[in-house]
Design a protein around this nucleic acid. Structure first.
Lengths: 137, 137
DNA sequence: ACCTAAAAAAATAAAAATTATTATTTACTA
DNA sequence: TAGTAAATAATAATTTTTATTTTTTTAGGT
């Protein structure tokens, strides 16, 4: 919250109730919502907000490095409050998306750099399977 | 080509010129085209083909395990002739997508299984950076 | 605290990607 | 080779995202 205000100011962007609201939804929901899910979460308490504003806020946050955009093979993008690169685990039954905060995966980039002689700047790892809860059924 | 016919027959699907044409485009183009790129490739030699048919063929091939659908953070899906799970390396300058055929990355799934107690069935790894050709500029 | 200029929001339209529908054509079985 | 089920083409509809335009709001300077 303090972070949001600091970063917005740093980027000479205005602090608006809409931006705060969108950011708070991401902060409170670790289910990696897409733009529409965020919009729906906001609807009850913020009935006048526009979906375009949600998209524009998310785009801005991503540019400012506040959040990250992820892509788990669905037809829409999802947004992650944690901007730091980390793997995601997707349950193919209940469709939940979990974070895997493990630094060791970051080393893969250097392996790729050696193999392909690229200068790697970002990595996106996604594992699909059945979660413990769904296995028991 | 023989593979396509065998698998289509095995799935009791009909062997049509359109399906053969779509499959051939993927076989001959390792740049991981999206549906529209495939459609455009076909247009000169196959002017009557419909974009919907391209989509339906690709969907079928993916279901039959002939190809794989990948997702490199663009707004459209790309299709990979190589159905076996392998990492992809994307150049953020020229936007080319390369395959990284290295078995060692497959071990990551078991690591994730242990950490999160999921039964992992698929993994999708994507590395972004600047390719050797683009670095020299 | 008030005015002002610039930025952002809302509403809407447009664009892009994908899927669904329906009539016609084609592939394959018997 | 005739019949039937499946596939294609053409088109419409849907979904997701972006652009446009008008109105409103923020934040800095008086």
């Amino acid at each position: 919250m303090e972070t949001l205000i600091k970063v917005l100011k740093g980027g000479s962007c205005k602090i608006t109730p809409q931006r705060i609201a969108v950011y708070n939804v991401l902060q409170d929901n670790f289910d990696h919502p897409n733009a529409e899910a965020i919009y729906n979460k906001l609807a009850p308490t913020y009935p006048t907000i526009s979906l375009a504003t949600v998209y524009k806020s998310l785009e801005l946050f991503a540019e400012l490095g506040l959040i990250q955009v992820i892509n788990i093979g669905e037809n829409s993008f999802r947004y992650d409050y944690n901007a730091k690169s980390h793997p995601h685990v997707v349950c193919t039954k209940c469709h939940k998306v979990e974070d895997l905060e493990d630094e060791s995966f970051m080393e893969l980039s250097s392996a790729v750099e050696e193999m392909k002689h690229y200068k790697i700047t970002k990595q996106q790892l996604c594992f699909y399977g059945v979660c413990p809860e769904c296995t028991d059924m």
